[in-house]
Amino acid sequence: MTAILIVEDDAKLAELLEGYLEKYGYQAEVADNFNDVMAIFERIEPQLVLLDVNLPKFDGYYWCRQIRKTSVCPILFISARSEQMDQVMALEHGADDYITKPFNYDVVMAKIRSQLRRAYGEYAQAGGERIHEQSGLTLYPERMEATYEGREVSLSKKEAVLLEALMKQYPKVVNRDSLLEKLWDDESFVDENTLNVNVTRVRKKLKDLGIENGIETVRGEGYRLPTDWKGAR
């Protein structure tokens, strides 16, 4: 049975979500200790997490980052915060979707089913672990790690998706619209500035590996890995 972890400090709402999920055949678990959400996550090993932003002690962004260190399971934020920046922060910290309160339970269920299909079902990547290599750079997108000449860096989910798109198309230019589609898929909110932010972050991660100028900007088109990859160090 598919396990879903609910991290929500509104006890009434958490109870309603739990009942709704169980009605549709899911195993719903409600977090009862907001000081150590990771302990609950590791015990339950859920296939999906519903995560509030406003939580005691540490907020949802913090717990999202902690989960992303060990898992790529879908994370859906559920929050009363409706500002665009809150949605941007959630996505950049590794979330897969952002649902604002009050919400329609049928919409929540549809989004849960969509994320589960994408992660484990008919839309999931078939076969073993994906590995991409280019001139000494190795990317493990599912681990959210990259290595180069003995060095290793951790990546956020969005950084891994961005770098994978560039490596798969090397040496071609990947246009901005294509990258935005890969990064945010069917999300309702898209801000091109967030693409710039993620490109900057990936450049920094590549620099940490010893690769200078690791992503080339092609004005008016998009981005690509430089053709003189080995020399760009």
Rank of each mutant, 00 (worst) to 15 (best):
I44A: 02
L206R: 01
P141Q: 09
K230P: 03
V173G: 08
G19K: 11
E221Q: 15
R143Q: 15
M38Y: 04
P102C: 13
I112A: 09
K168F: 05
Y26W: 09
H93Y: 09
L163G: 03
Q66Y: 01
R65F: 03
E164H: 05
Q125F: 11
L76R: 07
G94F: 01
T217S: 09
Q169D: 13
N213T: 01
I44W: 00
E212F: 11
Q115V: 05
G127E: 06
A95G: 14
E149N: 13
V161H: 00
Q169F: 03
R113H: 14
L209Q: 02
M144F: 04
V107G: 00
L139C: 06
V161K: 02
V161D: 02
F58V: 04
N193Y: 11
V49W: 05
M38N: 02
I4M: 08
G210Y: 04
D208N: 09
M85W: 11
R118Y: 12
Q47E: 12
Q125N: 10
D177F: 08
G220P: 02
A28S: 11
G231H: 08
R151C: 04
E149L: 10
Y20T: 06
D59K: 07
V107D: 08
A95T: 04
P74Y: 09
R219I: 08
E129W: 03
Q84K: 12
I78M: 11
Q87A: 12
F77V: 06
S114H: 13
Y61K: 05
S188A: 15
K205C: 02
K168Q: 14
Y61I: 12
K158E: 00
I6S: 01
F58D: 11
G94E: 06
L13A: 10
K111S: 09
C73R: 01
V202G: 00
I6N: 05
I75H: 03
R201D: 00
Y98L: 05
A14Q: 03
E92Q: 14
K101Q: 10
E152M: 12
K69D: 13
R117N: 15
Y170F: 15
K111V: 09
M89L: 14
W229P: 12
N175M: 13
Q125M: 12
F58E: 15
E164Y: 00
Y24K: 10
V153W: 07
R151L: 09
E18M: 01
Y105V: 12
K172Q: 15
K101V: 03
I75R: 05
L137Y: 10
W63G: 07
E221F: 12
A31Y: 00
L209Y: 03
L5Y: 00
I78N: 09
R68I: 03
T200F: 07
T70I: 15
Q125E: 14
Y105R: 05
E221W: 06
K168W: 00
F58I: 08
L163I: 04
T100Q: 09
R201Y: 04
N35K: 10
N193F: 13
I211L: 07
L195S: 14
F34N: 07
W184A: 12
E164G: 11
A165P: 01
E187N: 09
